[in-house]
Design a protein around this nucleic acid. Structure first.
Lengths: 258, 258
DNA sequence: CGTTAAAAAATCCTATAGGAAAACTTAGTC
DNA sequence: GACTAAGTTTTCCTATAGGATTTTTTAACG
């Protein structure tokens, strides 16, 4: 390409601003899965989805192709797409085992490499967690789950290893956890006397009523990273994931017994 | 646009089709990236690609959407798709660091859980490696790279953890390694006196002439798993990845100095 | 009554043309 | 030479028709 003004001149980064329709559709469908609007295991009719979202098939197809790569939608050739089932107990354990392989290392690296920008971001994220504690109901659960996702993604990002950060993102673990929670919740609505169970699950996971356990665990991790204490960060992350697994296992088990 | 109807007067009957076209296109485009037919960093025109592959835009779009999820193609909104650049030295190191986090664990688990089916598969794969050693030229490099990919994927699969296996698959590390090799090779063709370098790279990586080092390392890992010696499997995998990194680092470095 | 086979319907997949919006190029004016 | 304005190209999206495959329905037969 010919001269592009003077090389020294500031390259006015004019970003396209407008997002592409297929990206929006991708997010919309993901949100529908998130909220059980598309229930696990149900078929996804391309035509119907296009009509419902008021777009043509093309962007829907692109979004579904990406969601398939993400493992959120499964494609059966010539039979159509369907939302993947909820995590089985084994898949759930496997997922957390995978996280145990990469996240403690990521926390350790983050503690070694963190700069002021990273420290500020960590503090801000912990602040947002405290804000989320003031919400109530499902919205709170969703807000806390989203904080959880951002918190872990942030640490993976601060670790400086893009491969690790990407692989964490692609686990979509927060989405799976939220679907699990909602599934239990919805079963409750269907009539079973699981009101207490769901409440317990909620309490157990985030311990909102008692000690905000998960948030406190996040606090320990964040402090270790900010103090650049890499060993402490590693062990704190490790035990956080393990205790998180323990808190959520009953939810996964309940599904599998269905 | 004139109709390109009878490009080769081929009967439109596309044979008894069992797989879906968009999947085939996905593999084709991946192969084109693999072989530098689509060079790193170059633009990918959907229209041109559709014409070239003699299909419509729809399957090409779906394939590109999936390739973007894979990180092999980047999309710039309203500007189109382009092939991602070759791995920088840092990205290369990060990728191998990531592999060090999951693959030694996978080998350890594989040794613990392997059954007769798995043992048979491992033996078969090692046999195919020995077959590949008889080929010559680029084809041999590709054959060995493909064996490498299958071998590591197989162990991840035997580990029994789908999250781990998936995350390994999505690194597409064999594809990145092959692109790196080809890039050096092509630079050579462009005139620099790197004939010896590429040859060295080839020799260094697989040690075909001397001791088939990488294959021997695979052998050690395979034997440890078959013997169900989990500790040995772990350490063998760890040192294999580290030595693989050492063998390939010069190739990545050469690219970055360009 | 149960099983099998053919026909019909539903659904998915592909092909093609064309329009809208953005980015790029070119030309004209100060 | 710098800035603006129109034209061109590119890219994304829409729409629709038709082919291919699976599923369902219907009908015949043992």
């Amino acid at each position: 390409m010919p001269n592009k003004k003077s090389a020294s001149a500031r390259p006015v980064k004019r970003t396209p601003r407008r997002s592409v329709l297929s990206d929006d559709i991708y997010e919309m469908i993901k949100a529908m899965i998130f909220e059980h609007e598309i229930a696990p295991g149900t078929k996804v009719n391309i035509d119907a989805l296009a009509v419902q979202l008021d777009v043509s098939q093309t962007p829907v197809r692109e979004a579904l192709a990406r969601l398939e790569s993400d493992g959120l939608i499964a494609k059966e050739p010539l039979k159509g797409y369907k939302a993947t089932a909820l995590l089985s107990l084994k898949e759930f354990n496997d997922l957390f085992q995978f996280r145990l392989l990469i996240e403690p290392w990521a926390a350790e690296q983050a503690a070694k490499l963190v700069d002021n920008t990273g420290k500020t971001a960590l503090k801000a994220e912990m602040q947002s967690a405290k804000t989320a504690l003031k919400i109530s109901g499902d919205d709170q659960f969703q807000a806390l789950t989203e904080h959880d996702a951002r918190f872990h993604a942030l640490i993976a990002s601060i670790s400086g290893n893009q491969s690790v950060a990407d692989s964490y993102e692609r686990t979509h673990c927060h989405l799976h956890l939220f679907r699990l929670y909602m599934a239990n919740k919805l079963h409750l609505i269907e009539g079973e006397s699981r009101a207490k169970f769901v409440q317990d699950l909620f309490e157990e996971y985030y311990q909102v009523g008692s000690g905000q356990l998960a948030i406190k665990e996040h606090d320990v991790i964040a402090k270790a990273i900010i103090d650049q204490n890499s060993k402490a960060a590693r062990t704190a992350m490790h035990s956080h994931i393990e205790s998180s697994l323990k808190r959520f296992a009953p939810a996964a088990q309940a599904i599998n017994k269905k």
